[in-house]
């Protein structure tokens, strides 16, 4: 039921990151969007903003709650998914594709063990559900 693509890394806060060379693309996981329900607003960071790993980057609103989004990686924001301003529900329908939230230029590789492998993330959400 819950999709956990095996080409991504994950945070304990349910963000995913796709690392391609010096570029990191970040979003929230399928599990996270299912837990949050219908998303209604995404506060996007500004390009040029710099964040350290696990800093609060933005706020995501579902009907029921507002939640912080933390960056799984240290870097400088290069691009944001502005289509989410009008269509936040893209995160519900395609969390790993059209629902990406921001891209960063990686300034520092994540510390070994600070992010979860797909298998480890799978295990985390399994134990969350119990």
């Amino acid at each position: 039921m819950v999709e956990v693509p095996d080409d991504l890394l994950y945070s304990k806060d349910h963000e995913w990151v796709r690392i391609e060379g010096k570029t990191a693309t970040v979003g929230i996981t399928d599990y996270a969007q299912q837990q949050l329900g219908d998303l209604t607003h995404v506060e996007l960071p500004d390009p040029g903003d710099h964040f350290n790993q696990f800093d609060e980057v933005s706020v995501i609103d579902s009907v029921k709650a507002s939640s912080d989004i933390y960056t799984p990686i240290s870097g400088t924001v290069t691009e944001v998914n502005s289509a989410l301003s009008n269509r936040p529900e893209a995160i519900n329908t395609d969390p790993y594709g059209d629902g990406w939230i921001f891209r960063m230029e990686i300034v520092e590789e994540p510390e070994e063990g600070s992010l979860l492998s797909p298998a480890a993330y799978d295990h985390l959400i399994d134990s969350d559900d119990e």
């Binding site: 209604t40 607003h41 506060e43 706020v59 609103d61 709650a65 507002s66 936040p88």
Partner: peptide, 8 residues
């Protein structure tokens, strides 16, 4: 609110 972001 002016926008879609909710106050809580």
């Amino acid at each position: 609110m002016q926008g879609r972001r909710a106050a809580r």
